[in-house]
Write a protein that binds this DNA or RNA. Structure first.
Lengths: 111, 111
DNA sequence: TTCAGTAGTCATAATATTTTGACTAATTGC
DNA sequence: GCAATTAGTCAAAATATTATGACTACTGAA
């Protein structure tokens, strides 16, 4: 995400901004972080289906988009916290708008 | 999109809803359609970098998500119109929230 | 009947994203 | 020193998404 991938449509700012939030795990992680700082291990427990690598990828992408900030906490059990940046906070209304969809589509189940 | 792809995270409704709107061309096409009915050829002109196939894929996915409706218009030049469905209209606030981001990130340019 | 306009389909290739599974590294308590 | 805790990295494989280029199908006008 440092440079544009071929996927990105340079003509559409909305596509660019949406892309910052999408991916298999990024929306969930964003939601968790919007309720306060989250740790790596905590996310692992909250998303038992996601692997370490998957979570690392999502966190790195959110960092590169300047949505999350990584902070090493030098305390009792040394750990890392991820918090929303100023930009990250600005994305909250987008998620609010998603939550407020009241005409929810019926979701297909896997066979 | 008839059944869930492996990509989809069944635990996260937000991921599911965001996925309906994302992809290289879907956000643009959604925007156009939110200003009134659009035609296939019109989209081709508006998105000169997108191929027919790309546009077809985007339209089909938006149809399958029940965001757009395809209507064959039996008139002078026979053509097809795509309009927002009732569900589609509900997605407009999400795009509004994206437009209202005022702390816009600096966009990297391709080398 | 042939042609332009409209709206596509199809098979294949190229890219991007996600998963898998083994391995690493710093700190703290014993 | 040694193990547990926390937080990762790395290379490779599997999937998903997007692009390419040739081809199709219907309608109405000349």
């Amino acid at each position: 995400m440092t440079t544009e991938s071929e996927h990105t449509n340079l003509a559409c700012p909305k596509e660019y901004l949406l892309k910052m939030l999408t991916g298999k795990w990024k929306p969930c992680i964003f939601s968790y972080a919007s309720n306060g700082p989250v740790r790596f291990g905590q996310i692992m427990k909250l998303l038992p289906e996601a692997t370490k690598q998957a979570i690392t990828n999502a966190l790195r992408e959110l960092e590169e988009s300047n949505i999350l900030e990584r902070k090493v906490i030098r305390e009792k059990p040394l750990h890392v916290e991820y918090t929303l940046t100023e930009l990250g906070v600005e994305f909250i209304p987008i998620f609010k708008a998603i939550e407020e969809l009241h005409l929810l589509p019926v979701r297909q189940q896997k066979q």
